[in-house]
Each structure stands twice: as structure tokens, then as C-alpha cells.
Design a protein around this nucleic acid. Structure first.
Lengths: 149, 149
DNA sequence: GCAAGAACGTCAGGTACCTGTCAACTGTCG
DNA sequence: CGACAGTTGACAGGTACCTGACGTTCTTGC
């Protein structure tokens, strides 16, 4: 409609802000921030990641990830162990408490997302996912484009 | 694929971060930040908006908008005038310089977006837009849901 | 006409995030 | 083996953004 919405970039931004708000609201009762929830989700799938691994996965700075993991550690949801061979890095694991917290929060978040996507068909959602993946890979594509110049 | 990407929220976040980076890179040659570009775009469509109007439109705090507009004003791209009747608010207008800057930057940004969306059909993009609009309206839908509780 | 409420721009303070940097450590290549 | 580039976690410093509050001005209901 409007000129600003013609730029899909800002539409994506509004969608992100809105989703973030909704998810954050759904997570307050579980005492988790959105970033923390994402990290727990990540650690469930790939236990033993390093701080740097987490930072790369969630697209944030190493330091930000470190601080956020510090919060999770202080809350007893996560624990850091020394890497068995690599003495500079540390492995991060979910504690039973953290795992339970995640399992409790996950359905809440997914319920919110499912409710929001209600009315869209499977193929619609597949198209959306493909487009979002394309956009998410855009910054990686920059390097490729630079090399072609 | 991965568990984290199963949550569309984080996929949207990555898309936004990536798009933001690409657009920011396209805007450096025009000496504009992404937020400034969005504001110029907004002001071209609706001249005479107040600071609070801009803040609402770009989903940011009044103060943030004020600071950013201050930058645009210092750069001579925008000018503030006293509102003719409402003495507490001020109207913001594009200067000729600002208008020219926007016209120069706009094709660059749209070229980037078009290139990224290449390969998607019109109907695909319509679905994506509809989904994003739905998500963007999610936070507005919260109130509605609260009222149903 | 006037009191109550809301909205405007602005100031102060805090939070979250990033960049830049460092020492320690790993892997690689001559 | 030993120099060297790359990586990891941590430290300081800076930036951008937000919340909360204020004085002023508009608007609404009585």
C-alpha cells in the first residue's frame, strides 16, 4: 500500500519486532528472554557448543552471547565445562533444569506461532520459508557478488 | 531443517538482520542509515508529520526518532517548522536536498531488493507479503486476545 | 469555561548490543 | 621443530535504543 511498505525490508522489520514482542510476552511466565530461549533451543539440538558457536548461530557478537549465557548459567539452566582437548574453549550444556524449562516454554511459543500462521496453507508457508531463507542468506551473498565485480 | 529454524520467529530475525546489512551497505554511498532512509521515504509520502508520527510509523521510541531526525536536520535533508495551529508539535518536511538524496538512494535499495526476490513469482511475493503483514499485525492482535480472556 | 486526561517534544538514566583489543591456545606450513 | 595465521574467551569503551519523567499544550466532558 504505502510507499514505506513497498520496501519489503521494512515489512520484515515490523514483522520481526512484532513477533519478538509476542514471543517475549509468551516467555515472561517462563522467565526467559527471546535470545535466551533461542540459545536453549540451539543447545538442545547441539549440546557442547562453544560460546563462539552460539554467537555465530544466533547472529550476535561473541561478547553478547557470553553475557547472555552468563545469565543462563546464573539461573542454573546451562553449565559450562572445560573442553576436553581444546583448552581455550568451553563446552556449554543444558542442565536438567534448563532442559525442563525449555520443554515447558517450547509449546507456548509454538502455539503462538501456529496461531499466527493459521489460515495459510502448507505450500504458502513453504514459499514464505523459502523467501525468508533467501533473504537470510543475502548477506552471505554479498561476498559472492563482490568477487564477481 | 534445524530445530532453531523450525521457529519461524528466528528465521524472520535472520532475514531482517541480513536485509538490514545489505541495505545499509547499499546506503553508505549515499551517507544514510537504514533508519534515516526509512524516515525520508516516509516523509516523502506524508510531508508535515510530527516527530511522534514518525516514531509510530517506524516503530521506535519518540526520543530515538527525535535524535535520528536531528541527524537528518543537521545534514540539511530535513527541516522542522512550527505547526501552524498546534504549538506543542512541529512539522517535518523534506528539503530539496533531502528529496534529491532520497531519489538517488531509492533505486539502489530497490535494485537490491528486486535482485534478492528474483526467481519468486508475483503470487509468491503476494503470499509472502500477506504473511509478513499478518505477523506485523500480531502485536496489535495481542490486545484483542487479552480482551477475549 | 474549566478541570481531567492525553499527547507533544525533551531531559536524564539505564540496558543491550557492538567494535576493538588482548593473552592464551590451536592448527598449518616451511 | 618453530614461525605464523586464525580462533577462543574475556576486557574496556562506545553507540544506539529504550523507559520514565517533566513542563507545555491540546482536547474532551461536565
Amino acid at each position: 500500500m504505502s510507499t514505506e511498505e513497498a520496501c519489503s525490508t521494512f515489512l520484515v522489520r515490523h514483522a520481526w519486532l512484532s513477533l519478538r514482542g509476542v514471543v517475549a510476552e509468551a516467555l515472561v511466565e517462563h522467565d526467559l528472554s527471546v535470545a535466551q530461549f533461542a540459545s536453549l533451543l540451539l543447545l538442545r539440538e547441539s549440546p557442547g557448543m562453544s560460546v563462539a558457536d552460539v554467537a555465530r548461530k544466533v547472529s550476535t557478537a561473541r561478547q553478547s552471547a557470553n553475557e547472555m549465557l552468563g545469565g543462563l548459567e546464573r539461573a542454573g539452566l546451562v553449565e559450562r565445562r572445560q573442553h576436553p582437548t581444546d583448552r581455550r574453549s568451553q563446552q556449554i550444556f543444558l542442565t536438567p533444569t534448563g532442559s525442563a524449562r525449555l520443554e515447558a516454554a517450547l509449546p507456548t511459543v509454538q502455539a503462538v506461532e501456529d496461531r499466527l500462521s493459521a489460515g495459510f496453507t502448507e505450500s504458502d508457508l513453504a514459499v514464505v520459508s523459502a523467501w525468508l531463507h533467501r533473504m537470510a542468506g543475502a548477506s552471505a551473498g554479498i561476498n559472492e557478488e563482490i568477487s564477481t565485480l
